[in-house]
């Protein structure tokens, strides 16, 4: 479990950073999306890996942290997903505007050969 999660965070994060360095806006946004997946998984993993435990209190298990999962990282991930969703949508609009104004999808408006 730990190994799979660590590997997937690493692969997603690595590909995201690589795509972030590319000169096309499409690659840029895919890179940001992959990175945000990696970060969301990372936040989730900070609540440790309790398997088969609900993040809610049962009536007679009050005060025993061993029987329920930490709900806070899950709440953080939800918030991060919502905010990331909104900012990505906004970024897409700016990319479209840039495409329309400059006629290319290079991040600087025009590439070295253009």
């Amino acid at each position: 479990m730990e190994l799979i999660l660590a590997l997937s965070i690493g692969v997603l994060g690595g590909s995201g950073v690589w795509l972030l360095m590319r000169p096309r806006t499409f690659q840029l946004i895919i890179g940001l999306l992959l990175l945000s997946y990696a970060v969301n998984l990372f936040i989730f993993s900070m609540g440790r890996f309790p398997v088969g435990r609900p993040p809610i209190l049962e009536p007679n298990t009050m005060g025993d942290p061993a029987v329920f999962a930490d709900p806070l990282p899950q709440a953080l991930v939800l918030t991060a997903i919502v905010i990331g969703f909104a900012t990505t949508a906004l970024f897409l609009v700016v990319m479209m505007a840039s495409r329309g104004l400059t006629g290319g999808d290079h991040v600087d408006g025009r590439g070295p050969g253009q």
Binding site: L32, V39, F91, V107
Partner: peptide, 17 residues
Amino acid sequence: RVKAGLHYISINLAASL
């Protein structure tokens, strides 16, 4: 503005991560 904004937004999205 759109060119500068594109850079500004992408850098700040990465910083938020």
